[in-house]
Design a protein around this nucleic acid. Structure first.
Lengths: 206, 206
DNA sequence: GGGCTTGCTGACCGGACAGTCATCAATTAT
DNA sequence: ATAATTGATGACTGTCCGGTCAGCAAGCCC
């Protein structure tokens, strides 16, 4: 008998499709990715996608959600578990993920959100509610804790936790546009930012 | 006689087309913008575009170049003319443009570069050579000058002038994705960053 | 006003692609 | 074994769009 024409694996299909779609979208963007290419990459037929996702747009949203959700949960948990203080968190878990992101596959997802986000309002809302606002809230808790404990002096950081992550955003964009790592050592850049930040907000020893 | 069917204005056409294209691209992105829509917006026929630009891609590159070039020249000139020192420049011309960008139409061009840049290597190279590297070099000159004059203490800023603009990039992305200004006062955010930065790098009065 | 140049038009072509559906085949129930 | 169920296929449709080109008309010269 020749190669099995197809398998029946209802359970695994959605994950297989979103994984394949993640790669196609990352490489070519939303519009330039055809459903057929995704199906081919997943080793199934085009029609199958429409059994699990109503439209190409639904597939896209599923990709973002399935990829982002677990990572964000992990990071916010790391923030709350960090009873080691602000500096320890920044120089530890934060630097780890911040340095990885600009070179990881996930950076392409950032591109997708920037390029396509405004066309998918409900996806943006979900992203806001489940990712951004949660992460910001966690950061704020950590900062407030560190101010109360006397590690940090009060500063604009409480109001703008984004001050911590802006160099990461710039690094991601840099890598997306410039492609290569020459001309900007994103690792050293993010570290330099952390140094400056801590120098500005740490409480002087009295 | 009915409405004039068309005019003959060879000189003005390219600018009219790039202006119309800028708006279409900004609204819908590259792929989702049709040449016909651009032509309609410019009040001409689709075929005309192909008399002035070889392909849709060439039109896109022309849009970026024509929009970016004058603004960058203006800013780099402002840097070099700023013999007022680092802080004066940051709190003056820099803050002015940095606060405007996230809400200006130009932010959509940032989206285009992030979304499409990697598909147009020669455009990216042009962008690097004529925009990014020039702006960075100008910033470095200013920083070095200010260190020499004793205004600033030596710091990582000389190596990474990007430390100055990262909150602007985050603000632009924020506005592109979140659409609305609620939840992040980009003006205050960028100012807070400037405050922290200056606190960290200014030379203490001896 | 008649002929010449050329800016401009719009119908047309070829190809690509999202989404549909009649049909098939692997599995399950009887 | 046979029938019923359902996961999976791929040909097909309608549409859209980038790019072409034969021809039209606005300006120009005589």
């Amino acid at each position: 008998m020749a190669q099995r024409r197809f398998r029946r694996r209802k359970e695994d299909r959605p994950a297989e499709l979103t994984a394949a779609a993640m790669n196609e979208f990352a490489e070519h963007g939303y519009d330039a990715t055809s459903v057929e290419a995704v199906a081919r990459r997943a080793g199934v037929s085009k029609g199958l996608m429409y059994l699990y996702f109503r439209t190409k747009e639904e597939l896209f949203k599923a990709v973002v959600r399935s990829f982002v959700a677990p990572r964000v949960d992990r990071l916010t948990r790391a923030i709350d578990d960090a009873d080691a203080g602000f500096e320890a968190f920044l120089r530890g878990p934060f630097l780890d993920t911040a340095r990885e992101l600009p070179r990881s596959k996930a950076r392409h997802l950032v591109r997708l959100m920037i390029a396509e986000g405004h066309k998918h309002p409900d996806l943006t809302r979900w992203y806001w509610e489940n990712v951004v606002s949660k992460a910001l809230a966690a950061m704020r808790r950590l900062i407030r804790r560190s101010v109360d404990s006397g590690e940090l002096a009060p500063s604009a950081l409480e109001r703008f936790p984004q001050l911590v992550i802006s160099p990461v955003m710039l690094s991601v964009v840099w890598m997306l546009v410039m492609q290569r790592h020459e001309e900007l050592d994103t690792d050293a850049f993010i570290e330099a930012h952390v140094d400056l930040l801590l120098a500005a907000v740490k409480k002087e020893a009295p």
